[in-house]
Every structure is written in structure tokens, then in C-alpha cells.
């Protein structure tokens, strides 16, 4: 716990750095002297940095909660069809009610995300507990099917290009007025921390939960609700971002174990750090052009995931 201060300081330093990375060069020494620069800061740079931090923390916390609900450490909302279901919901609402406000899109996306997650949990409840690697595989197949369905519909309705913006997450379009929904993700993350013990107990299994007097179904539904909401918030505002929810909770688990009360602050800070780092890499590697953060994470995250798979198969939950 002591070192979380270090992680927060690192996150703060990286955030400050992020404010000065962009096409328009701003000198650190006198940025406040030009009103143009201040506008740029408040319209683009600060919103973008905040959006990255909120998204990273939210994705990582969602991953940790989902791993408790599924009792498997190789799942996250974007690898088991939850984010894909949210994207399908956005596509459907855009087709059926074009021009509906963002909040309507978000609600529909949450509903479809929740349905997708419920289908996934129902499927894995039939799998034998002795083969934990089947769970992420079923998730990948399911998310592939939902994604294929979405692409098919988008293709038939000539919405493919539009669909691409939800499928691949990136922050270049973030401006003041277009990211504020993400604050709700922050609220949901705090809410998760408040009931962290209940999710930890759910992760111990149904019998342990009942024994400790928990209303198992109710807590699972609350968890599904939080997950569906924060996943669709991220998909609606920045698009799908892979691997954060998978990699970060696994690293935190190694350090802190499964007690969410202790590990969630780490999960949130590390998630924000990882996404901020990848966003910066995406902005700098081909400067002044950008590589979407999802692409950078796909490359980095898949290596870390492979490492986690091979490093500790005996402890796969």
C-alpha cells in the first residue's frame, strides 16, 4: 500500500507531460501568457488527459469486477462480448432512431451490454470449473460472433465506417463537451470501491457468499449493472479498448491478491497509467500523426497476456 503514492506521483507527472504533447507546440515556461494556449488547454489538452485517465481506471476496475463475477482471471468486458454487445446496441439505435441524443445511445448500449454479459455468464456457468481456460475461449468466440453480427448489419446498411469509430478506441476526437460522460465512469469506480468486499466475497464462490449472508443474485446483478454501464460509457465516448481490463487486474492480483478493498486503488491507478502511456506512445511514435490507443494496447497487451498465460498456468482460476 505504501508505494501507491509513487504510482500516483508517476501518473501525475505523466499527465503533466501529456498536456504538452500535441501538434501545436506549447512551451512549458510561458504557456499561461497566451490566451490562445489557455483555450487550447481547456478545450483539448486537459479534457483529453482526463478522458484517458478516467477511461484507463474504469476499464481496469471493470476488468477486476468481471473477473470476480466470472471467477476467472482471463476475462474482461471487451474480450467476452460485453463491449461488442454495447457497440451492437449503438449501431441498432443509430439505425432505428438516427439523431437520437448521446444519452439514449448510451442507455441502449448499456441494455445490450447487460444482455451480452448475462448470456456469457449463463454459458460459462455450464463449463466445468476444472478447465478455467475454457472460459476466456468461450468469451472470445462469443464476442467474435457478436462482432461479426454487428459488422454484417453495418455492412448491409453502409454504416461500416461509422461502426469503425466504436470498434477501435482512440482519444484524438476528445474535446471539452465530448468526454464528460466519462466522469460517470469515475463515479461507478468509486461505487465499486464502496462495495468492494461484496465483490471479493462473490469471487470466493456462491456457497461462500451465501454462508457469509450475501444475497448472491442481488450482488451479481449490481455488478452486471455497474459493468454494463461503465463499458458502454467508454464505448460510446472513446470506443473499444482491449487488454487494459485483462492485464492490469492480473498484475495487481500478483502484488496484492484478490482482496479488492486493498487492490482496487492499485487497479485504478495502474489502469490509468497504462492507457496514458499507450496514448502517449500513439501520439509520439509517428508525430504529428496519431496511432489509435487501441492499436498500441493491442500490441503491448497481447504480449503481457501471453506472458500471464504461460507464467502461471497452475494458478489459472
Amino acid at each position: 500500500m505504501k508505494n501507491i503514492g509513487v504510482a500516483i506521483v508517476a501518473l501525475f507527472a505523466l499527465s503533466c507531460f501529456s498536456l504538452f504533447v500535441g501538434v501545436k507546440e506549447i512551451a512549458i515556461s510561458d504557456w499561461w501568457q497566451s490566451p490562445q494556449n489557455i483555450d487550447l488547454f481547456f478545450i483539448s489538452r486537459i479534457p483529453r488527459t482526463l478522458a484517458v485517465i478516467l477511461t484507463g481506471a474504469s476499464l481496469a476496475v471493470s476488468g477486476a469486477v468481471m473477473q470476480m463475477l466470472a471467477r476467472n482471471s482471463f476475462v474482461e468486458p471487451s474480450s467476452v462480448g460485453t463491449a461488442q454487445s454495447a457497440a451492437l446496441g449503438i449501431l441498432l439505435v443509430t439505425l432505428l432512431y438516427p439523431g437520437s441524443p448521446l444519452i439514449v445511445k448510451m442507455i441502449v448500449a448499456s441494455v445490450t451490454a447487460m444482455i451480452g454479459m448475462a448470456v456469457f455468464l449463463a454459458m460459462i456457468s455450464r463449463l466445468p470449473v476444472t478447465s478455467p481456460l475454457l472460459v476466456p475461449l468461450v468469451g472470445l468466440i462469443f464476442s467474435g460472433i457478436v462482432e461479426a453480427l454487428t459488422i454484417f448489419i453495418a455492412f448491409q446498411t453502409e454504416m461500416l465506417q461509422f461502426q469503425g469509430t466504436w470498434m477501435s478506441g482512440e482519444f484524438s476526437g476528445i474535446l471539452r463537451g465530448r468526454y464528460e460522460l466519462l466522469w460517470l465512469c469515475g463515479v461507478l469506480a468509486i461505487l465499486t470501491y464502496v462495495v468492494a468486499d461484496q465483490f471479493t466475497i462473490i469471487g470466493m464462490g456462491k456457497d461462500a457468499s451465501i454462508n457469509l449472508g450475501l444475497n448472491y443474485k442481488q450482488v451479481v446483478i449490481v455488478g452486471l449493472f455497474i459493468l454494463a454501464l461503465s463499458t458502454s460509457l467508454v464505448v460510446v465516448t472513446v470506443g473499444m479498448i482491449p487488454f487494459v481490463g485483462l492485464v492490469v487486474p492480473n498484475i495487481a492480483r500478483r502484488l496484492m491478491g484478490d482482496n479488492l478493498r486493498a487492490s482496487l486503488p492499485w487497479v485504478a491507478v495502474l489502469g490509468a497509467l497504462l492507457v496514458l502511456m499507450c496514448d502517449l506512445i500513439g501520439r509520439l511514435v509517428h508525430f504529428p500523426y496519431e496511432i489509435p490507443v487501441g492499436t498500441v494496447l493491442g500490441v503491448i497487451g497481447s504480449f503481457v497476456f501471453l506472458y500471464l498465460l504461460y507464467a502461471r498456468p497452475a494458478h489459472a482460476r
Binding site: R71, T200, M204, L212, D258, N259, A262
Partner: peptide
Amino acid sequence: LSSRMSLRDLVGF
């Protein structure tokens, strides 16, 4: 039970 938890935390639950 497969949660990775310290014995003290486990007993504490």
C-alpha cells in the same frame, strides 16, 4: 476457493 488472499484477510472475511 481459489481466491488469492492472505490468510489474515481470508479469516477476516
